[in-house]
Amino acid sequence: MGYGKYRFIASFLALPLLLYVVFVVSPYVQAFYISMTDWRGFSANQKFIGLDNFVELAGDQLFWKAMWHNLLLLIIVPVVTLGIALFLATMTSLGGRRGLLARGGVRGSRFYQVVFFFPHVVPVVLAGVLFTFFYNPEAGLLNALLRVIGLDWAVRPWLGDTTFALPALTVVLIWGAVGFYYVLFSAAMKSVPTDVFEAATLDGAGRMRTFFSITLPMIWDSIQVSYIYLGITMLDGFTLFQAMLPEGGPDNSTLIVSQYLYRKAFVEGRFGYATAIGVALCLVFIVLAVVALRATRRERIEF
């Protein structure tokens, strides 16, 4: 060691760091400056206008509409997704066929594990195109199914309906996300020592009691991290929404902030304003993350 060590370190770090600084760090840093200019794509016309973009943003109804949709997603998608994932994980890794002591899980839990995770590896764009046809008024699987089981009154152009378009997209988001958290929670549950469950059973705790008093507190860390991570994903959500309803849906009923940003930047050419949208969304996210972390904080259980 010693001589040549620093030369070696420098030679290994130089290229990756250069790449990272040019394409990742510098855009983020620039974003904060650009958000305070009226830039429309020509560097000659870049004027510093302070917080004017943010003032305009505060009065921009479409922005708030999009932000509202993001907040709805932020609340609904994680709650439903994590709920389903927790339920499935409990059933397969702790359920068992014969009472609470069964830690091996139900019959075929390996099969479920493979199947449940699969939607998560399907590229989001593919899922988007696929579900666009699932919801298609004439050829779609959903309306066909409703007609077969006699619920003709429920048949509708799902994605063309201002009330149902956003819920329809939400379902796809949940479909794609459950598998990932299912695997995560299964792993977390398997890491809880068996004796804890055995002790609970011996003390006469039922399934519900065991779940709420043992399983949930034991894997609380995983749930918390998952909520935050899923929250980040929901603040973006661009890929699926752009693939399914690129114009923001009927009467902008599925417009989300990242789509609005993209529209302002690459359709209208208002780069300064678009960047301000990104910065605003990022700040909202940081506030929400801090609030969520504080609100859900519990004593960490060591085991």
């Binding site: 394409f23 990742v24 510098s26 855009p27 983020y28 620039q30 974003a31 650009i34 980040i232 603040l235 973006d236 661009f238 990242s258 940003l261 993209y262 930047a265 780069f271 678009a274 960047t275 990104g278 910065v279 969304l281 990022c282 996210f285």
Partner: peptide, 10 residues
Amino acid sequence: FPIFLALVPL
């Protein structure tokens, strides 16, 4: 950090 924040400068 969300990617779309970096999108325009990138």
